[in-house]
C-alpha cells in the first residue's frame, strides 16, 4: 500500500470512529455532533462571505505579526549572536521575558492597546519573536570556527565573512525558527480573538458560536478551519525550507 492510501485510511478510520461513537450514543450529540454534520458545516462555512471575511482578518493579522517578528528578531539575533558581551548582558532579561506566557499578557494588552486588531498582532509578535531570536543566536554561536578561519586566511574581511559564511550558515536555522513561530503566531491570533473577544476573526466566530446557544457544530467547524490553516502554513513552509536549503541538514534534523 502506498503511504498516501495509509494516510487516507487513517483519516477515514478516525472520522468513522467519531461518527460511530456519537451515533451509538457514547457521546451526547448535543455536545459533540457527528463527524458528518461537522464536515458538512465546515464546507458550508467556507462558502459564506462573512466567515471568509473572518478568515481573512485572522490571516492578515497573522501575516503582519510574522513580518514584524522577523523584522525584530532576525536583526536582534544577528547582533546578539555576533557580540558575545552584549549576549551575556541581555541573557537575564531574555530568559525572564521569554517564559512569560503571552496569554498572561492578554488582559494587559486589552487594557493598554484595546480590543482592536492591534492587540492580537502585538501578542502574536511577542510570542513569535522568541523562537526566531533563539534560533538566530544559536546558529551564530554554533558556527564552526574552521569555516571562519578558512575564509579569513583566504583574505576575507569581516563584512565578507559575515555575508558569505555566517549568514548562509545561519539561514536554515533562522528559517526553522520562522516556521515554528508561524504556528505559534496563528494559534495566538485565534486564541486572543477567542479570549479577548476581538471584533472579527475565526476566534471571534467560535466565541459567538459558543455563547449563542452553544452551537457545537459551528465551534468544531471553526476549529477545523483554524487547524487546517495552521497545517497548510506549516506544510508550505516545510516544503519551501526543503527547497531553499536542500544543501543543509538543519531543516531535516531540527525537531518540532
Amino acid at each position: 500500500m502506498r503511504p498516501i492510501y495509509r494516510n487516507l485510511a487513517g483519516l477515514i478510520a478516525f472520522l468513522g470512529v467519531w461518527e460511530a461513537a456519537v451515533r451509538l450514543g457514547l457521546i451526547n450529540d448535543q455536545y459533540v455532533p457527528p463527524a458528518s454534520v461537522v464536515l458538512t458545516r465546515t464546507v458550508e462555512l467556507l462558502g459564506q462571505e462573512d466567515f471568509l471575511r473572518d478568515v481573512i482578518a485572522s490571516m492578515l493579522a497573522w501575516a503582519i505579526a510574522m513580518l514584524a517578528a522577523i523584522g525584530i528578531a532576525v536583526p536582534a539575533g544577528l547582533l546578539l549572536g555576533s557580540l558575545p558581551g552584549l549576549r551575556t548582558a541581555t541573557t537575564a532579561i531574555v530568559e525572564f521575558l521569554r517564559p512569560i506566557p503571552s496569554v498572561a499578557l492578554i488582559p494587559l494588552a486589552i487594557l493598554v492597546i484595546g480590543g482592536g486588531p492591534e492587540s492580537k498582532i502585538a501578542l502574536a509578535i511577542y510570542a513569535s519573536v522568541w523562537p526566531i531570536l533563539y534560533n538566530t543566536i544559536y546558529a551564530f554561536t554554533e558556527i564552526d570556527p574552521l569555516l571562519i578561519d578558512t575564509a579569513r586566511s583566504c583574505g576575507a574581511k569581516r563584512g565578507r565573512v559575515l555575508a558569505s559564511v555566517a549568514l548562509p550558515h545561519a539561514a536554515p536555522f533562522v528559517f526553522t525558527g520562522i516556521r515554528m513561530s508561524a504556528a505559534v503566531a496563528l494559534i495566538l491570533v485565534v486564541s486572543t480573538e477567542f479570549i479577548a473577544g476581538a471584533s472579527t476573526g475565526i476566534g471571534r466566530f467560535i466565541l459567538d458560536a459558543t455563547s449563542g446557544g452553544g452551537r457545537m457544530d459551528l465551534v468544531l467547524a471553526g476549529t477545523i478551519v483554524a487547524g487546517l490553516l495552521g497545517y497548510l502554513v506549516n506544510d508550505g513552509l516545510e516544503r519551501l525550507g526543503g527547497r531553499l536549503f536542500r544543501w543543509h541538514a538543519a531543516t531535516t534534523t531540527e525537531a518540532v
Binding site: 496563528l186 485565534v190 477567542f194 476566534g203 457545537m216 476549529t223 487547524g227
Partner: peptide, 11 residues
Amino acid sequence: RAVPPPTLVPV
C-alpha cells in the same frame, strides 16, 4: 497539533 487548543475549551 495545528488546532489552537483554546478554541476546544468550549467543547
